[in-house]
């Protein structure tokens, strides 16, 4: 580590529910001011990890610090230094926008002299100016989410945990939400944000890929595409994609092949000649467009990484 202590550091963080291992020996380092995307399929363990880091679930094993404080030994200090948005919307629908803000301002003991100004900031940020007295349950999804973010940052926490803050929110509102995340990061706030949306991953400084409780890769989107794919990716089209896929799985130099819609993505071992692939298909009596090198998407990387590291069987 160089200089500043990490905003989040986890070592061997593990959570078991009975015999089921939801998060398995997770190591994670997040530097101050980073935006880290937490990506993984349903049930991967994203929420469980975030809840442990917020002190809401007790780790079964392992340790972690948040903002320099131990999550097991100093949970209250941790809570004073974080903002949290749970996956399920959890502000009070029967309170107004202003009442929710004032309530959380009180809980976080935001100095009274500053509270008004911070509430005004949160209202503006959420785009709710003029709707301070509206009951929160009457707001649409995007506004609710931005208000929840506003409540979570009233006390200016150095670390933010956002659990799928944009799920079920329309694209335009999602984009606005990411603008907010970046403006917070620009002020030095560290943010761990989980999401299902691959396109959102591109907005992050780094991405942590998690599947079946394991952290399978972490790095910037560019790094992941270059490094973790481990080869060149080509795309081809075939009228018989199923037969082509079966044939490709045995072809020399093919590391991985997968169907993406009506196309096939084929990962070639370093040094494999794409032209040889075309000849191989023809030799097998299959027609296909010539293989075309493409820039991998994060989805490609994700498919590749998940298939390389088989999920451990749930005991």
């Amino acid at each position: 580590m160089n200089g500043a202590p990490p905003a989040v550091q986890a070592r061997g963080l593990t959570k078991r529910f009975g015999a089921f291992v939801a998060v398995d020996a997770l190591d994670l380092d997040i530097a101050k001011g980073e935006v880290v995307g937490f990506i993984g399929p349903n049930g991967a363990g994203k929420s469980t990890t975030i809840r442990m880091l917020c002190g809401l679930l007790r780790p079964s094993a392992g340790t972690a610090t948040v903002a320099g404080y131990d999550i097991v030994r100093e949970p209250e200090t941790v809570r004073a230094h974080i903002g949290y948005m749970s996956q399920k919307f959890s502000l009070y629908g029967d309170l107004t926008v202003a009442e929710n803000l004032r309530f959380f301002g009180g809980l976080y003991r935001v100095p009274r002299a500053e509270l008004k100004e911070r509430m005004a900031f949160a209202v503006t940020m959420a785009g709710l100016t003029g709707r301070e007295d509206a009951l929160v349950r009457t707001l649409a999804g995007g506004w609710k989410q931005r208000l929840a973010l506003g409540c979570a940052i009233l006390h200016r926490p150095p670390v933010l945990f956002l659990d799928e803050p944009t799920s079920g929110v329309e694209p335009e509102a999602r984009r606005r939400f990411w603008d907010l995340i970046h403006s917070l990061a620009a002020d030095g706030v560290t943010i761990l944000v989980s999401t299902h949306y691959m396109d959102e991953a591109e907005y992050c400084n780094r991405i942590a890929l998690i599947a079946a409780g394991h952290l399978i890769a972490i790095g910037s989107p560019g790094e992941l595409k270059r490094r973790d794919l481990g080869g060149a990716l080509v795309e081809l089209e075939s009228p018989q994609p199923g037969a082509a896929l079966a044939a490709l799985h045995g072809a020399p130099g093919v590391v991985e092949a997968a169907i993406f819609g009506d196309r096939l993505h084929v990962l070639l071992a370093p040094g494999t000649d794409a032209a040889a692939l075309a000849r191989f298909l023809v030799a097998h009596g299959l027609t296909a467009t010539p293989p075309k090198p493409i820039i991998p998407s994060l989805e490609d990387v994700f498919v590749r990484l998940v298939s390389r590291k088989p999920a451990p069987e749930a005991a």
């Binding site: 917020c54 002190g55 809401l56 209250e76 809570r79 004073a80 974080i82 949290y84 749970s86 399920k88 919307f89 959890s90 502000l91 009070y92 629908g93 959380f104 809980l107 976080y108 003991r109 409540c151």
Partner: peptide, 14 residues
Amino acid sequence: ERGTMEQLISTPVT
């Protein structure tokens, strides 16, 4: 029941 407890206990309230 409403899920507001999760937010509540993430704050320093005792």
